[in-house]
């Protein structure tokens, strides 16, 4: 469904991604992990073109999307939901309108229908009673659940998550992960950049480990957690799972 062919990304002198080849099947749940600055956010932001390619191709459903602009690019983006670390809810709109805006302005859906869709999505993320709440009135976990509902509004086939729980208080991470678990079981294709190894172990079909712009490891969770092949991945896992016991480098 999504294919990276020799993908490079450069920001000036900075070589962020160095020749990524990757194929993701429909319905697959892929967790992307790696140290900060490794290029994992860039990897998923290339898929919905929040970043542009420097070299190579990204093929979605058999079509290379690099040259797409205007309406064609907008149509592609409605098929891909994106969830941000900082939620990025529209601050001047309540939860329901956050969800209906794109439905009405991009898909041209009538207001009544869009409202019904929004309420159905809010119920799905457990926030049926918060339709009229503004982002500033919601906790971080609630905001992120509204953001997930918003990403689902246009019925995307692909969902991209960029560290969805990294900005949350520990006690609200669970409610967001629960929504993501339900989605992972729903058959939608998911790419999740996260350090939540519990989520990765339980729900991922595959784990990608990226360091310095290269995919060092692509393995099933069982294999990845039992015996990561690459020394860099071994060290990363040790640091992540027991940070206290890892000597300062």
């Amino acid at each position: 469904m999504i294919e990276f062919r020799g993908v490079h990304k450069r920001h000036g002198d900075l070589h962020v991604l160095k020749g990524i080849d990757l194929s993701i099947a429909r319905g697959e749940v892929v967790v992307v992990c790696g140290p900060s600055g490794s290029g994992k956010s860039t990897l998923i932001r290339l898929i919905n073109r929040l970043e542009t390619l420097s070299e190579g191709e990204i093929v979605i459903d058999g079509q290379a999307t690099a040259g797409w602009r205007g309406r064609r690019l907008q149509a592609l983006r409605t098929r891909i939901g994106f969830v941000f670390q900082q939620f990025n809810l529209y601050a001047h709109l309540d939860a329901r309108s956050n969800i209906t805006l794109a439905l009405r302005k991009v898909l041209g859906m009538p207001a009544v229908e869009a409202d019904a869709r929004a309420d159905e999505l809010l119920a799905r993320v457990g926030l049926a009673d918060k339709a009229g709440a503004f982002p500033s009135q919601l906790s971080g976990g609630q905001q992120q659940r509204v953001a997930i509902a918003r990403a689902l509004a246009t019925r995307p086939e692909i969902l991209l998550f960029d560290e969805p729980t990294s900005a949350l208080d520990p006690e609200t991470i669970g409610e967001v992960l629960a929504v993501m678990r339900e989605l992972a079981h729903s058959g939608i294709t998911m790419l999740v950049v996260t350090h939540e190894m519990g989520f990765a172990r339980e729900l991922a079909d595959r784990i990608l480990f990226i360091d310095q712009g290269t995919i060092l490891e692509s393995a099933a969770p069982a294999d990845f957690f039992r015996a990561p092949a690459h020394p860099r991945a071994q060290r990363f896992l040790r640091q992540l799972l027991s940070p206290l016991h890892e000597a300062v480098e």
Binding site: N48, L50, Q74, A75, L76, R77, T78, I80, G81, F82, F84, Q86, F87, N88, L89, Y90, A91, L101, A102, K105, V106, A147, R150, A151, A153, T154
Partner: peptide, 11 residues
């Protein structure tokens, strides 16, 4: 970020 969110929704 709100601009990016809107872009990613196809606006």
């Amino acid at each position: 970020g709100q601009r990016e969110a809107a872009l990613s929704q196809g606006m």
